[in-house]
Design a binder for these strands. Structure first.
Lengths: 345, 345
DNA sequence: GGTAACATTTGGAGCGCTCCAAACGAGAGT
DNA sequence: ACTCTCGTTTGGAGCGCTCCAAATGTTACC
């Protein structure tokens, strides 16, 4: 009585066979309108809800894709997720999300979790250790940064091919440097941190600075990439500036928006105004950057489009498992808000 | 060959029966160490991953609980989630999260989704329409605000009992008013919005103001509760102040942290400093409030504890489905940072 | 009136696992 | 030597659904 009704219960109530109920559920064609209605009515009355477990088991498909993100605390993922849903929803696919940081903290392997759940495809938008995504036996798309591309080598060899869509972090780093350079800045500090995306952004930055004959000042290499790390790296930059020339940098490029926010805190604590005294440029164009109170100029890696493309790739690969692997590199652009000013110094 | 291996494959390779493999998987006692090892080895070699669908179907349990949150964009949920995991993980339960806003936008019912997935319990931490959680037939706990309590009536009648753990929003509103009053403020604007939590906070605020003989100035009633709404409501408050006495409020209490951030933007645009010219108090103690660049004083509804208690209630109810429904009201406190100052005006 | 052609509906055989009752072995006790 | 235990292992019967081949209508056409 408290037991969950099954298609048999529905079938009995509607006076049809279980198979017909199944057809109605998947709204198949060639079902008489009257019976369809009768079944729907019975479903209503019984409060029947299909068992995804049974359906997955029988059909070997869940019409769902898993999305692995880095960390729920960094709102970077919000747009990615929205982009992915915008293509998955119309296709009738469901998205399940997991947070790598949280999963690892509890000693679980999120990829195993997804596979146990029978996701039909996997989108990895986090720096997962290569062995985690190896041997996945399900369409895999790497979404995020160019830095994840090396994973490909492995995946291609011992499993299906993996598609990749990434923001070109190296180009983004160069872009950031040039953006600041073009606005008259020369003493530009870069706040970096560990992890592949940060590394690529840094490399691009360093290269572009060198090309312009400016000295790249890099801080925070030993730390992470969250707000506190940004704060700390900014303090280092400030202290280095005092020690050396007595002049702080006139601009700061942070490896992501959250770090930029940390930097802004450190600057304010030091009595420096943004952008009057020092300009700040972030990366990601996360929701944070767009807040009116923050108005952070930032490098936009097109996270929404990234999500959409990744989802599309997953869909395409499910349709054609043997198609050649695709790679798409998205060209970043800078979004100007109010944290960078032109200087004549 | 590309097919996913099953316990039969593992059993064959390890030279045991499928039942033994199943026992090893659930690491049951009374399994000889040698066989256990053999099975584990076979699992390794084959890259076997259990099928959650099959297991759910056979055991009628997934050892997972669903968590419905409001909106991924409001980082309020981050701590809630961490709190919930802190109790679910040790108990061997898995958490799956869905975002009400996103699901509704794509015309889906997230609760149906959870039930189709066979979650063993459901934690609702969003203002879901009552009919959505009716007739759920699975332990249900309402986590969030006192305002969700009315749902209970329904759930109790036509389904299992629902447990509730909530922050006392009404008390929080009063607390906010008193906090500001005690610090010498009299012209206090409240930025509210639609939705039950905001309503309760507002009611508490209005009551406490009245009790102190101060006039409650409420704005933004016609809007929502995100950053832009906070900005708009703050502008209204400022304009009203000019029109009336020529004096802006000396303090602002926003219905949540994101709105407070919007208010801070409006204040800065108006050339007013926080807290020197006007104090700002938020609500939720979200990660936003803690950023060094923001340092927002805020009412802490104990979201982490909320998550933990909710998870515990879910666990308890699964263990004792017939136990009387529990309700827990968490008393909010204010977290002082740097956005409120004492005034003598 | 009979039958081909099509639209609709149905039972049965799994999908990969869990759980149960029963089988099996190996010491222990008599 | 024989029975009892107790620890360990096993086959079988489902869980609720999908998918297929086959059955059953229905309509149309000769």
């Amino acid at each position: 009585m408290n037991a969950r009704p099954t298609i048999y219960d529905v079938a009995q109530r509607a006076g049809v066979s279980k198979s017909l109920v199944s057809l109605v559920l998947r709204n198949a064609p060639h079902v008489a309108e009257a019976k369809r209605e009768a079944v729907k009515k019975a479903i209503q009355e019984l409060g029947y809800r299909p068992s995804q477990a049974a359906s997955a088991l029988a059909s070997q498909s869940t019409r769902s894709v898993g999305l692995l993100i880095d960390d729920f605390r960094n709102p970077w993922f919000v747009e990615l997720l929205a982009g992915a849903r915008s293509v998955l929803d119309p296709a009738g696919y469901t998205l399940t999300v997991a947070d790598l940081r949280l999963e690892e903290a509890s000693g679980r392997n999120p990829v195993d979790g997804f596979l146990a759940q029978h996701v039909d495809a996997l989108v990895v938008a986090a720096e997962a250790p290569p062995e985690m995504v190896r041997d996945v036996r399900v369409p895999l798309v790497i979404a995020g940064t160019r830095s994840l591309t090396p994973l490909l080598g492995n995946s291609l060899e011992d499993g299906g091919p993996a598609d990749v869509v990434a923001g070109d972090d190296d180009a983004g780093g160069q872009l950031a440097a040039r953006h600041l350079l073009e606005r008259g800045h020369r003493r530009i500090a870069h706040l970096s941190g560990q992890g592949a995306p940060a590394e690529h952004r840094r490399q691009g930055f360093v290269r572009a600075m060198a090309a312009a004959g400016a000295e790249p000042l890099v801080y925070g290499l030993d730390g992470g990439t969250d707000e506190a790390d940004g704060f700390r790296a900014m303090r280092q930059a400030l202290e280095a500036g005092e020690r050396a020339a007595g002049a702080p940098p006139t601009a700061v490029f942070a490896a992501n928006d959250v770090m930029a926010l940390g930097a802004m805190a450190a600057l304010r604590d030091a009595g420096l105004r943004v952008p009057e005294d020092v300009s700040v440029l972030g990366y990601d164009d996360s929701p944070l950057a767009a807040y009116g109170y923050i108005r952070l100029s930032t490098v936009d890696g097109h996270s929404r489009r990234l999500g959409a493309e990744a989802a599309q790739m997953a869909l395409d690969r499910m349709a054609a498992p043997a198609a050649p692997a695709r790679r798409l590199l998205l060209e970043p652009v800078v979004v100007e808000r109010s944290s960078v000013r032109v200087t004549d110094a």
